[in-house]
Nucleic acid binder design. Structure first.
Length: 694
DNA sequence: GTTCTAGAAC
DNA sequence: GTTCTAGAAC
C-alpha cells in the first residue's frame, strides 16, 4: 500500500515547521460519476478535526447543478477563510483540473488529487442506483455517460501542479485514504508525491471478451466470483442479480472503434447521442455499454462483420464462440450479410450455451462503418459518411432491442420464467422473488418430467415443449372430453370470426363461388384480404388440423399435396406474369382455424396489408416455408412450434434488402421500388418460386 | 382475420 | 394539425 497515512514519524518531523500556521489543503477529487467522490468527502468531513468545505458542482447552485466558475469562486472564498476544500466534481481531464490547481497556487495552498479509479462496473452500478430508479432509462444513460468519461479520462500528474496525488483502485485504497485525510488535523500535513499509481497509461479496456469469458468457465465459479466482486457494491449482489433478471438488459460494445478504427471520441459522442434518443422509449429496460464482467443481460449486441460469420474481431469471435453453432444457424436463417449501419435481431435457439447458461435470449448483429484502410470497404477517413452510418448502426441496434422489448412484454409468463432459470437461480431460488409464484410450477416440471398444457389464455403460445402434450391422461381426458365445439385439437379457443376457413373446408359445396379448385384433400381459394397482388390459400380438408401444431408424420402426404397444388397455382400465375415471385408457407400461429398454406406473391402490393403484424407474418420466422415444414416432418415427425409470436412485432424490414423502416407507409413505399436481389436464404432450396429464365 | 378508435408520434 | 399504431370488440 503506497498510501502513507500511518507514517507518524514524518508528521512529527514536519510538525515544528508547520505548527506555527496550519495550512489548508485543496483536495481535487478525480473520478467518474458513481466512483464515490461525495461519499469520500462526507466520510472525511464527518469526523475530521480540520475545517473542510465541500465544493460540489452537482449541488452548488442552491442544491442544483451549477457551473465550474461557481465552484472556483466558492473554493477561493473558502480557502481565503483558511478552510480546506474538497473539489467534488469529476475532474477527469487536465483542462478541467488546471483552474483549480492555479487557484491553489494563488492562495498558497497545496493542491492534492485523490483519484478514485475504481472499476467501471462499480461506478456504473452506483450511478444507475443513484437515480433512484434502478435499471430504468436513467440507468442506461448513466452507463453511457460514465463509460464515455472513463474513455476520455486523463489521470493527474504531479507536473500539473499537484503536491500530492493518491490513486485508489479499490475499496481498501479508498478506506485508507479516507483514514489519512480524516486523521489530518488542522496542523498536520501529508507527504508530497505520487502514490498508488499503476500502469499510468492504461486505457479502460473496452472488451466483451472478459464479459463473456465466464461462459467457458464452470458457472458456479463465475457466479461466486461475481458475488465476491459485487460485495463492495453498496446495494449488494442479491439485489443486483434479481434486478438484472427483471430488467431486460442490452449489453452492447462500442461499434467500429476497434477493428474498424473509428475515432473513439466521435464514436463516444454518437453513442451518448443515440442512447439519449432511445432511453425514453425503453421504459423499463437497460442499456449497458460493455466493459462489465459479470453483468447479466438478456440481449447482446455483436459488432459483426458484413458476412455475419464467426472469427475476425474480438467481440464477434467471442460471441460466436460463446453462443455455439446454434447462433450461426439461427443467424443464417435471418440474413446472410449485413450492410454498414444495419442490424439484425437473432433470437438464440434454446440449445445455445449462451441461452441456457446465461439467459441471453437474443443477439443483435450490428455492422458499423469501417475506417480501417486494411479492411474492405474502408470509408477513407470520410467522417461525414462514417458518423451518419454509425448513427444508423446504433439506431438499428436500439430499434431492434425495442422490438424485443415490445414482444417480451407480450410473452406469456412461462417464457420469462424460462429465461430467468439460470444456474444461479437454481442455486438459491429464494433469491428470486418470482419463485414465490412459480417455484411449485417448476418443481412439477422437474419431478415428473412432463409439461402441462399451456393456459388457453396464452394465445398462440405453443412453444415446442408445450405443444407436445404429455400430461397425465386425466388432464388430457378432461380437455378432450369437455371440449366445446369451438375448440380444435390443440385446445386453442377460436373466436367465431376464426372459423370461416374451417366452415369452408367442412362444407365446400356451400362455398362453390369462392373456390378456385376442389380436390379430394385440399381446396384452393383466394385469400379474402390478399396481402399481395396474388395471394391464394390451399386449404386442407381434414378435420382436426387447425394449424402446424397439429401436423404429424401421418400428414406428410397431405403436406406434400398441399405444396404441389400451391406450386401448380404459383406456376400458373407465373405464366400470366413472369415477373412475379411466389413464396409458399404456413403461419406459425394462424389466426384462422384449419390448416392452410399461403401462396403469396412477393410484391406485397395490397391495400389490405396495413400493419406490422401483416408484414411480419409473411416476412419473419413466423412464416414457415412449406419446403422446410415438409423436411421437418420427414425428419422429426412434427413441426417445431417455437414461440415466434414476438416476430410479429419486430421492426419492419424490407424482405429484399433487409433495410429497416419506421412505419408501414414508409416500408410500403420502399418495397414498391426496392430491386435488391432476395436474400440468399430465400433463393436457396426452393423457398421462392420464380419464372424460369429463358 | 377486420374494423374502430384513442392516443401516441410526428 | 395529421399520421400512425395498437388494443378491444367482433
Amino acid at each position: 500500500m503506497a498510501v502513507d497515512h500511518n507514517k507518524k514519524d514524518m508528521d512529527i518531523d514536519n510538525k515544528g515547521e508547520e505548527e506555527q500556521k496550519g495550512k489548508p489543503v485543496m483536495v481535487i477529487l478525480v473520478g467518474a460519476p458513481g466512483s464515490g467522490k461525495s461519499t469520500f468527502c462526507e466520510r472525511v468531513m464527518g469526523s475530521s478535526l480540520r475545517p473542510w468545505t465541500r465544493i460540489c458542482q452537482d449541488t452548488i447552485n442552491n442544491g442544483k447543478a451549477g457551473t465550474k466558475p461557481q465552484c472556483l469562486k466558492r473554493a477561493a472564498a473558502a480557502l481565503k477563510e483558511g478552510k480546506s476544500v474538497f473539489i467534488d466534481r469529476c475532474n477527469l481531464d487536465k483542462e478541467q483540473r488546471s483552474d483549480f490547481v492555479k487557484l491553489g497556487c494563488g492562495a498558497q495552498v497545496d493542491a492534492h488529487a485523490v483519484v478514485l479509479d475504481l472499476p467501471a462496473k462499480l461506478c456504473i452500478s452506483r450511478s444507475i442506483k443513484r437515480t433512484g430508479h434502478e435499471g430504468n432509462l436513467q440507468g442506461g444513460k448513466a452507463a453511457a455517460v460514465v463509460n464515455r468519461m472513463l474513455q476520455k479520462k486523463e489521470l493527474p500528474k504531479l507536473n500539473e501542479g499537484f503536491a500530492r496525488i493518491v490513486f485508489c483502485h479499490n475499496e481498501n485504497d479508498v478506506e485508507a485514504t479516507i483514514t489519512a485525510y480524516t486523521a489530518l488535523g488542522p496542523l498536520d500535513t501529508l507527504s508530497n508525491g505520487c502514490f498508488g499509481q499503476k500502469n499510468p497509461d492504461a486505457k479502460i479496456q473496452l472488451g466483451i471478451m472478459k464479459f463473456l469469458k465466464k461462459v467457458e468457465a464452470p458457472f458456479q465459479c463465475a457466479a461466486s466470483k461475481e458475488v465476491k466482486e459485487s460485495e463492495n457494491l453498496a446495494k449488494g449482489s442479491v439485489d443486483a442479480d434479481v434486478s438484472v433478471d427483471e430488467i431486460t438488459t442490452l449489453a452492447f460494445p462500442s461499434i467500429s472503434t476497434a477493428d474498424f478504427q473509428f475515432n473513439n471520441e466521435t464514436a463516444s459522442d454518437i453513442i451518448v447521442e443515440k442512447v439519449e434518443e432511445f432511453v425514453n422509449k425503453l421504459k423499463n429496460a437497460r442499456l449497458v455499454l460493455v466493459d462489465l464482467r459479470g453483468l447479466r443481460c438478456n440481449v447482446i449486441a455483436n459488432a459483426a462483420n458484413w458476412r455475419l460469420k464467426p472469427g475476425g474481431g474480438g467481440v464477434n469471435a467471442a460471441i460466436f464462440t460463446a453462443a455455439g453453432l446454434a447462433l450461426e444457424t439461427a443467424t443464417k436463417e435471418r440474413a446472410n450479410s449485413l450492410l454498414p449501419g444495419h442490424a439484425v435481431v437473432v433470437p438464440l435457439p434454446s440449445d445455445s450455451p449462451l441461452y441456457t447458461r446465461e439467459g441471453v435470449s437474443h443477439v443483435i448483429h450490428v455492422l458499423g462503418p469501417n475506417m480501417n484502410p486494411q479492411r474492405p470497404n474502408s470509408l477513407n477517413n470520410d467522417y461525414n459518411k462514417g458518423c451518419s452510418i454509425l448513427r444508423e448502426a446504433y439506431t438499428s441496434l436500439f430499434t431492434g432491442f425495442l422490438s424485443i422489448l415490445r414482444s417480451r412484454s407480450k410473452l406469456p409468463r412461462r417464457i420469462s420464467e424460462k429465461l430467468a432459470l439460470t444456474p444461479l437461480d437454481l442455486k438459491d431460488p429464494s433469491l428470486d422473488p418470482r419463485n414465490h409464484l412459480t417455484n411449485s410450477d417448476q418443481k412439477i416440471k422437474r419431478d415428473d418430467g412432463c409439461v402441462y398444457e399451456r393456459s388457453k389464455k396464452c394465445k398462440g403460445a405453443n412453444d415446442e415443449t408445450v405443444a407436445d402434450i404429455s400430461a397425465p391422461s386425466s388432464t388430457y381426458g378432461k380437455v378432450t372430453g369437455d371440449k366445446s365445439k369451438l375448440e380444435g385439437p390443440t385446445s386453442k379457443t377460436w373466436g367465431s370470426w376464426a372459423q370461416a376457413l374451417y366452415h369452408i373446408a367442412m362444407h365446400p359445396e356451400k362455398h362453390k363461388a369462392e373456390l378456385l379448385e376442389v380436390l379430394d384433400d385440399v381446396l384452393v381459394l383466394n385469400d379474402l384480404y390478399p396481402k399481395a397482388c396474388k395471394h391464394l390459400l390451399v386449404l386442407a380438408r381434414h378435420e382436426g388440423l387447425d394449424g402446424l401444431a397439429d401436423v404429424h408424420q401421418e400428414h406428410l402426404q397431405l403436406l406434400m399435396t398441399m405444396h404441389a397444388v400451391g406450386l401448380k397455382w404459383a406456376e400458373k400465375l407465373l405464366h400470366e406474369d413472369s415477373s412475379m415471385v411466389f413464396r409458399l408457407g404456413y403461419h406459425l400461429a394462424p389466426s384462422m382455424r384449419q390448416l392452410h398454406l399461403h401462396v403469396i406473391s412477393q410484391d406485397f402490393n395490397s391495400n389490405h396489408l396495413k400493419n406490422k403484424k401483416h408484414w411480419n407474418s409473411f416476412n419473419t420466422a413466423f412464416f414457415r416455408d412449406s419446403v422446410d415444414v415438409i423436411e421437418e416432418i420427414k425428419n422429426h415427425g412434427k413441426a417445431t412450434i417455437k414461440d415466434e409470436d414476438f416476430q410479429l412485432s419486430m421492426e419492419l424490414r424490407c424482405h429484399r434488402c433487409r433495410s429497416a423502416h419506421p412505419n408501414i407507409p414508409r416500408l410500403k413505399s420502399h418495397i414498391s421500388i426496392c430491386q435488391a436481389p432476395f436474400p440468399h436464404a430465400l433463393l436457396e432450396n426452393g423457398h421462392l418460386v420464380l419464372a424460369l429464365k429463358t
